[in-house]
Design a protein around this nucleic acid. Structure first.
Lengths: 151, 151
DNA sequence: AGTGAAAGATCCTTCTT
DNA sequence: AAGAAGGATCTTTCACT
C-alpha cells in the first residue's frame, strides 16, 4: 500500500510541496529518477490529490469560524445542499448519518455575516451553530505511520 | 488587505503550489521579481501558511471518516484534549461553544477501528459520532473574491 | 512597487548499466 | 533503481524608473 520510502516522501512534501526531486532523493536515499517515478505513481494512484497551499483565513480577515449542523426540512435536501455549495463562505461540508444531515464549516468576518448567511438557509433547514474558540488540531493528514508499521 | 494580483496568485497556487515564479508572473502580468516579492510578503503576513500536498485518506485505506462531538466529563477537559491530540487518526479538532466541547474528524480503516478509538475516550467523555456518507464540499479556501470585490 | 536583463545556480529527464 | 550528463529552466541580483 505504501512503503517506508513513499511514506517519507509524503511527509516531506506535506511540510513543503516545493521540495525538489534532488532534495527528496537525498533525504530518502534514492536517486532523482526513482523519486520522480514514485511521485508519478502516488499521483496516479490518487494518494497525492494536489500540490497546493494552505491559506490562513484569519490572516485574511475571516476572524470567525463556525461549525454548522444542518437538518434540511422534508423535501428540501437537494435545495439545501445546492445552496451550501454556492455559498463560498462554507469551507467544508460533510454529509453524515444521524439526525443532522450536514456538518459544515463556515468562514466569516463578523457575527453579523454569520447571522446573515444562516438566514439564507433558515427557511429550508434547521441549523445548530457552534462558534470555534480554538483549534487543538488543525487539518492534518491521516496517520501514514499506521500503514507501514514504522514511526 | 489583498489586491487583485495577490488574489490571483493565491488562486493559482491553490491549484498548483509548484507553479514557478516565471509562470506566475506571466499569468498575472508582472515580472518575476515582483511576484517573488509579493509571495514573500504573503508568507510573512501569514496568509500563505504552507506549501503542502493534499493527501487522499481513501487512497490510503482510510475508507471511513467520522465527525465526533466530544463532551468531556467534569474535570477531564485537558486530559481529553491531550488524548485527542495524541491519537493521529484525529485529522482535525475544533474547540467550540455549546454543549459539545470539541468537534473532531476521524480517519479510520474500519468500523472496528472506529469503535476501538472511541473506547479510548469513553471513560473520560461523552461522544456522539456521525459517519460521513459523502463530502459535498471538500476543504476549500475562504472566499478570496469577497476581499477584493472582484470575481 | 515594479521592470528587464543577466548571471549563476539548480533542476529534470534521458540513457545506459 | 543508480549514475552521469546535457540542456532546459529557474531564481535572484542589480541598476533604473
Amino acid at each position: 500500500m505504501l512503503d517506508e520510502l513513499d511514506r517519507k516522501l509524503l511527509e516531506i512534501l506535506v511540510k513543503d510541496s516545493r521540495t525538489s526531486l534532488k532534495v527528496l532523493a537525498q533525504q530518502v536515499g534514492l536517486s532523482s529518477p526513482s523519486v520522480s517515478e514514485r511521485l508519478r505513481r502516488l499521483e496516479e494512484r490518487g494518494v497525492i490529490r494536489a500540490f497546493t497551499i494552505e491559506i490562513d483565513p484569519q490572516a485574511l480577515g475571516f476572524s470567525l469560524q463556525a461549525i454548522v449542523r444542518i437538518r434540511p426540512l422534508p423535501g428540501k435536501l437537494h435545495i439545501v445542499q445546492k445552496l451550501i455549495e454556492e455559498i463560498p463562505e462554507f469551507g467544508e461540508c460533510d454529509k453524515v448519518t444521524g439526525d443532522d444531515c450536514f456538518v459544515a464549516r463556515l468562514f466569516v468576518r463578523s457575527i453579523g455575516e454569520l447571522d446573515h448567511l444562516l438566514d439564507r438557509i433558515a427557511d429550508k433547514a434547521e441549523t445548530s451553530t457552534a462558534i470555534i474558540k480554538g483549534q487543538p488540531i488543525r487539518r492534518r493528514p491521516p496517520p501514514l505511520e499506521a500503514l507501514t508499521g514504522r514511526s
